[in-house]
């Protein structure tokens, strides 16, 4: 990703002060029009080499007293100056707008859709945009007036991820100069926990004490009575019959699998992030298997449901668990 890290030297030197200054200079906004207020321009390394070439040519012209060698040097120098205007103009007037920020899982790429609109009239070429942590993409504005560019940034941590300032740059037309700007489009995308896939734990058969289940084949169905075997839950012992017959009998319940799952933070093992990851994996698995599921995160309870919208709500809660920011 050298293209992005290869920031020209004014930024590298000024560093963090630059970004503070930038916040004042180019304030965050979902839609930004580029103008002389927020465009920076500086020669590239190629530009400096080019200037060196000009010096050599002028030296040659002086020593050979050749008017036309002077003329070549001056023409190339003027070309450089004219290019300053061209490079600046290439960015100037561009309108950037964040269209969409698609959520993703930790470790995957977040997709941000940025729309670039150029003013009518002169076409623009060689415009690249991207975040420092992603890859630069080209905006094609040669034949059309607007282009939507999809930019990808690796999702780092659960919660809202702000990819920072977006770099918009151009080297057009000669690559001797670079015009660029850092715009803050207020972009943020939701990052879901990294899914960890595992079997649903047995105990995740729902909170029986609340008894709100109406399903006739629910897991509470009594089926049979048999002798106690070591290991049976003591809850199931029929103490009244023991009092009568000295025999330990237990009730047997039908262990139908409950089709509606309850994903509970307390039912999975590991640290809090790991727990959230496991729940994420289960939510995905349940959706894939077309099973209804509910979510219990501390005080929050989402009643069971199915479908993409439900999954999105669940994932959103998992992503934002513990955060106050919504």
């Amino acid at each position: 990703m050298s293209s992005v890290d290869g920031r020209t030297f004014p930024e590298r030197i000024i560093g963090s002060r630059f970004s503070a200054w930038l916040d004042k200079r180019v304030p965050p906004s979902p839609q930004i029009t580029l103008s002389q207020r927020n465009i920076f321009i500086f020669p590239t390394r190629t530009g400096f080499v080019f200037s060196g070439l000009l010096l050599l040519l002028i030296l040659g012209a002086v020593n050979y007293q050749a008017s036309l060698v002077y003329a070549v040097a001056f023409l190339l120098g003027s070309l450089f100056l004219v290019t300053i205007l061209y490079t600046f103009q290439n960015l100037s007037g561009l309108q950037l707008e964040l269209v969409n920020a698609r959520p993703g899982f930790v470790g995957e790429d977040l997709e941000f859709t940025v729309r670039v609109v150029r003013p009518q009239g002169k076409s623009r070429e060689g415009i690249q945009l991207g975040w420092p942590s992603g890859i630069m993409q080209w905006a094609e504005l040669l034949d059309k007036e607007a282009d939507t560019v999809r930019l990808y940034v690796e999702a780092q941590r659960r919660g809202y991820q702000d990819p920072g300032r977006l770099l918009v740059e151009t080297y057009f037309p000669l690559g001797l100069l670079r015009a660029w700007t850092w715009v803050d489009l207020n972009a943020r995308a939701l990052v879901y926990p990294k899914p960890v896939f595992q079997d649903f734990p047995i105990s995740q058969q729902g909170p029986r004490d609340e008894g709100q289940l109406i399903d006739p084949f629910g897991s509470e169905d009594f089926r049979d009575i048999r002798e106690y075997r070591p290991g049976d839950p003591t809850k199931h012992i029929i103490w009244r019959s023991y009092a009568r017959s000295d025999e330990l009998m237990v009730k047997q319940y039908a262990s139908f699998v409950e089709p509606r799952l309850w994903l509970n933070l307390d039912d999975v093992s590991g640290g809090i992030e790991e727990k959230l990851s496991r729940l994420t994996g289960m939510a995905l698995k349940a959706t894939r298997q077309d099973r209804e599921f509910g979510l219990k995160l501390g005080n929050l309870k989402l009643s069971p449901g199915l479908g993409d919208a439900h999954l999105e709500t669940v994932l959103r809660e998992l992503a934002l668990y513990g955060f106050t920011e919504r």
Partner: peptide, 10 residues
């Protein structure tokens, strides 16, 4: 176009 526009300055 670039070269033509550079000529006056030259």
């Amino acid at each position: 176009a670039l070269v033509v526009q550079a000529l006056p300055f030259t």
